[in-house]
């Protein structure tokens, strides 16, 4: 039986594990898993991604509600290591539309694709921010009063997105944009609806979900309301955020600290 090139990386990992066992070296399983992670490899991986994967995951890899393909630019729900990504690419995900890559695709190209997917999310250890996360935490609950609308680790308000792991899905530049121009990209979940019912009642609240025949909102008192559309006389949809811009109300230093704090909010490994 000859050397099977498809599984060389498993051999490599096994060797690494043996080395660690024998010599007590620090574990570097992820890095050892991908030797194809230069900028050239990432570029090649991107070419492959755009050609083979973008149909479902989107040209920007941000996922597609219609195909059910997830956003790949943040933390991946099904793989926490490069080896995990490799295995998904090789084997697909049973019971989903995620098919394996072509069986005859060389491992080297699969690893280039892994490198591209990995590069889609920022490695926080490589990011140097001018702000202080510790100070940002104080701004968050102090001058910024962010916690009156946002929860972190179960503490805070309900009128904005839960930010417990926001650092996994937003990079520092996006976080700063969220603070300064909150109306730019507002997910439909955070649009506001102003509804007059056929019974004359008026309610205003966050648009939790809307479909062809019904609508659900949460008002400012956190009451949940579900309307059949046949019982709505008129509805105004405001596709803006209820969050104010903090460009004028917080200092640059505060904003930098807030960004540093929010970027630090991620699942502890």
């Amino acid at each position: 039986m000859g050397f099977n090139s498809r599984f060389w990386w498993q051999w490599l990992l096994a060797s690494g594990a043996i080395s660690i066992f024998l010599f007590g070296l620090p574990a570097l399983a992820e890095d050892a898993g991908n030797l194809y992670n230069t900028s050239y490899d990432i570029g090649q991986g991107q070419r492959y991604f755009e050609r083979q994967c973008s149909r479902c995951h989107g040209f920007d890899a941000k996922g597609n509600d219609e195909t059910g393909a997830p956003d790949l630019t943040g933390r991946l729900s099904r793989a926490s290591t490069n080896v995990g990504i490799f295995n998904i690419l090789r084997d697909g995900i049973a019971g989903t539309a995620m098919l394996p890559v072509a069986a005859d695709l060389p491992d080297s190209q699969v690893w280039q694709l892994v490198a591209y997917v990995d590069a889609l999310s920022i490695d926080p250890t490589n990011v140097n921010l001018s702000g202080s996360a510790t100070s940002g935490a104080m701004v968050f609950t102090g001058r910024g009063d962010c916690n009156s609308c946002h929860m972190v680790s179960g503490q805070g308000g309900r009128l904005g997105p839960d930010l417990t792991r926001v650092g996994e899905r937003r990079d520092p530049e996006e976080l700063m944009s969220d603070l300064i121009t909150p109306h730019e990209h507002v997910a439909p979940r955070w649009w506001t609806m102003k509804i007059t019912g056929t019974d004359g009642s008026y309610r205003e609240g966050l648009r939790m979900n809307e479909d062809s025949f019904s609508l659900r909102i949460m008002d400012n008192d956190f009451n949940l309301w579900s309307y059949p559309k046949t019982r709505i006389e008129s509805a105004e949809r405001i596709e803006e955020s209820t969050m104010p811009s903090y460009a004028q109300t917080l200092t640059e230093s505060d904003l930098d600290d807030l960004v540093a704090y929010m970027f630090s909010l991620r699942k502890e490994i």
Binding site: R47, E50, F59, K62, N64, E66, P188, E210, E239
Partner: peptide
């Protein structure tokens, strides 16, 4: 809509680009 340069390879995707939604579907 994006355009890309691609060479034909038997059995491989041959699409020369792709697309991206800039707004959520609900819009």
């Amino acid at each position: 809509f994006f355009k890309r340069d691609e060479e034909y390879e038997v059995g491989e995707r041959f699409t020369g680009g792709g697309g991206r939604y800039a707004q959520p579907m609900d819009a």
